Amino acid sequence: MQDPVTRLDERFSAPDAQATPWPAAREVLETAQLFWITTVHADGRPHVTPLVAVWLDDALHFCTGPEEQKAVNLSGNPHVVLTTGCNDWTQGLDVMVEGEARRVTDRSALERLAAAWAAKWDGQWRYQVTDAGFTHEAGEALVLAVRPTKILAFTKGTFAQTRYTPAE
């Protein structure tokens, strides 16, 4: 998300709070080791599970096996929320990304993403690129990208809620 519109939501912020600058929120997305994804079952119930993700080219990317519950849910409803942060009330920055998950099948994009996964986790996540996504020791993995429609950052300690939306 290049130069997003940044707004402090005063309703949910301390009186003297300042909007969190976009580079600080983007850094959290780039460096987070774990995210929680929320998808929706066909009957409307939420489904939440942890996963690893990579921020690249202004989108958050993740993988799933084609038979996993999140993949099944996404086939009927592509809307997701991915959340990362820490369990401390007094410090840190929690970030939430909202958007639609879309398959990535472009081979050059997949090659770049496989390299990004390997680099981010010092080689612990190694994928081989296929025409359909990735393969690894556990089998096939679909690769999805979420281009944010909205990002929220929750600054703790100074208690600020900042909203980022794509520039028009």
Rank of each mutant, 00 (worst) to 15 (best):
W22M: 14
H47E: 05
D3K: 02
T38P: 00
Y164S: 07
F35Q: 06
D106V: 06
E100W: 03
A119L: 06
N77T: 13
N77H: 13
F35G: 02
P23E: 13
I151R: 13
P78R: 07
Q128W: 10
T158F: 09
R26Q: 15
L152K: 06
E27N: 08
L113W: 01
T83M: 06
A71K: 07
H61W: 05
N73F: 07
M1L: 11
L110T: 10
A160L: 08
A160S: 03
G99D: 10
P50G: 14
Q124M: 12
M96P: 00
V104D: 05
E27W: 04
W36T: 09
D122R: 03
P4M: 10
K156L: 14
A145R: 08
D88F: 04
G85L: 05
R11L: 02
R147Y: 06
D122I: 03
T6M: 04
N73M: 14
G65V: 09
T38Y: 10
T31V: 05
A101N: 10
D106C: 08
T165E: 11
L110F: 00
D16Q: 14
F12D: 03
L93S: 05
A59H: 12
C86S: 10
H61R: 07
Q18G: 13
E111Q: 09
A115P: 00
E27M: 06
V80Q: 02
Y127F: 13
A115F: 02
E168D: 08
V52T: 15
G133E: 11
W55L: 10
D106M: 01
S75D: 14
N87T: 01
V54E: 15
T38H: 04
V81I: 07
L82Q: 10
Q91S: 10
H41G: 10
A145K: 04
A114R: 09
W89A: 13
P148K: 05
V81W: 00
T6W: 01
T105C: 07
D122P: 12
D57R: 03
A138D: 14
W55E: 12
A17P: 14
A109R: 06
A115C: 06
D16T: 13
V72T: 12
F35T: 00
T130P: 04
K120C: 06
Q18I: 09
E98F: 02
A24V: 15
Q69S: 01
M96L: 06
W89K: 01
L74F: 09
V48L: 15
T6F: 01
G157M: 06
V80F: 08
A14K: 04
T84A: 04
T135A: 08
K150Y: 05
E10H: 10
A71W: 08
P166V: 00
A167V: 01
T6I: 06
L93K: 01
M1P: 12
E68G: 06
W89E: 14
V146K: 11
L142S: 05
R7S: 00
